[in-house]
Simulated scan of single mutants.
Amino acid sequence: MKRAAPTIRDVAAAAQVSTATVSKYINGAQRFSPKVEAALQSAITSLGYKSNPLAKSMITGRTDTIGLSVLDITNPYFSSILKGANRVANDRGFSVLLIDTEETPSRERRTLEELARRVDGMIVFSRMREHEMTWMAEIDKPLVFFGSLNELPLPTFASDDHGGAFMLTQHLRLLGHKRFAYLGFSKSRRDEERLGGIRECLGAAGLDLAIYDAEAPSLLEGERLCSSIVLGSGGPDALICYNDLMALGFMKEAANLGVAVPRDISVVGFDNIPYGKYTTPALTTVDLQSERLGAAAMDKLLAVIRGEPVEKLTKIAPQLILRASTLARRG
């Protein structure tokens, strides 16, 4: 016959205290003398008692859970964000509840409002423009947002997309490239920042930029748009892609079309996803420090939950990763 799980009453009887004392102890609502706490811990350990998280949340109003809303968990960039955030959360006694909005802005509001009822705070990625997000500031839970905001009073964290794009473009300029193209994703506000860094660098040299816009930041879109980019007259000798996934999709289709990377065209991306160094050729990219970003965002949110002051924007510097998908041009 299966033995019944020990209850709070069993712990109280073993420690010779009231059930109210046990409840306050396990929920951290009150401290007791060392003697009483030792008796309580001894009873809990010997009985194998485990508290009910749901009951605890009803008493304390806390779930010890953080919500993380990402745009596409199949993208390795967001997997790294989750890894960094989860590590910090676990170290602080929190768990992470992941929500994937699947690059669908229309479902974000309902999803986030439902998530807010189940967590102590949220880290949010969104494709929405700032004027569409005023409701987000009204959610009655601590929230940290990814990306720069001009008006909404939310603490934010971000990578330096503008600086990373400038570095990447400058590298290609120093290799002697003259004909530049950008395979972008205009539905993302980060696209504006990356495009701004590229244009600043090229503008200083008097160089033009051809722009191609993808429907999604995916392998398939990089593959689909490849022929439009490389088969026209006067095509680019350097392509900057919005992210590594699009760059890898482009490189695959370029090989099918008989276009050699980097002999015919240098290709670069953003994010430094793990697959990039295993392709042939390996992909030059900007490492946006995604795992560090996840950890920094979680640190910031937990500080907000504790009621501590935090800076409005936390920005992490990128790093240029040089590999074989770029080649110097002569003449």
Rank of each mutant, 00 (worst) to 15 (best):
R127S: 03
G184E: 02
S186H: 12
L152G: 10
L152I: 12
L143N: 03
R189N: 10
K141H: 11
Q170R: 13
G164D: 02
A116W: 06
T134L: 10
L152A: 12
H131I: 01
G121M: 04
H171R: 12
L175F: 04
T111I: 10
A116Q: 06
F146P: 01
D161A: 14
L112F: 00
R173G: 00
A165H: 06
N150L: 10
F125K: 03
M133H: 03
W135D: 04
F180P: 05
T156M: 13
A165Y: 04
V144D: 05
D161V: 03
G147H: 09
L168Q: 07
E113S: 10
A181P: 01
L154Q: 11
F125D: 09
E113L: 14
R110G: 12
I123A: 12
A181T: 02
N150F: 04
G121L: 08
H131T: 02
L168G: 04
E113N: 06
E114T: 14
L115D: 08
P153I: 13
G184I: 02
A158W: 00
M128C: 04
P153S: 13
L175A: 06
G163S: 11
N150I: 00
E138H: 11
G184S: 06
L168C: 07
N150H: 12
M136T: 02
S148R: 15
D161H: 15
F185Y: 15
E138A: 15
D120Y: 10
E113W: 01
L152W: 08
S159L: 07
E130L: 09
I139Y: 01
D140H: 13
A165G: 12
L115I: 13
R189I: 12
M136P: 09
K178F: 03
G164L: 00
T169G: 02
M122P: 02
P153E: 08
W135F: 07
A116R: 04
G176Q: 10
F145A: 07
R179I: 02
H171T: 01
R189V: 12
D161L: 12
D161E: 15
D160T: 10
E114N: 14
E113V: 11
F146G: 01
M167G: 01
N150S: 14
A158G: 03
T156Q: 11
K187T: 07
L174N: 15
F145M: 13
T169H: 02
L143M: 11
E132L: 09
F166S: 07
D161P: 04
R110I: 14
E138V: 04
R179W: 05
F145I: 10
A137G: 09
A116P: 09
K187Q: 15
R127I: 00
F125P: 04
E130V: 03
L172P: 02
M122K: 05
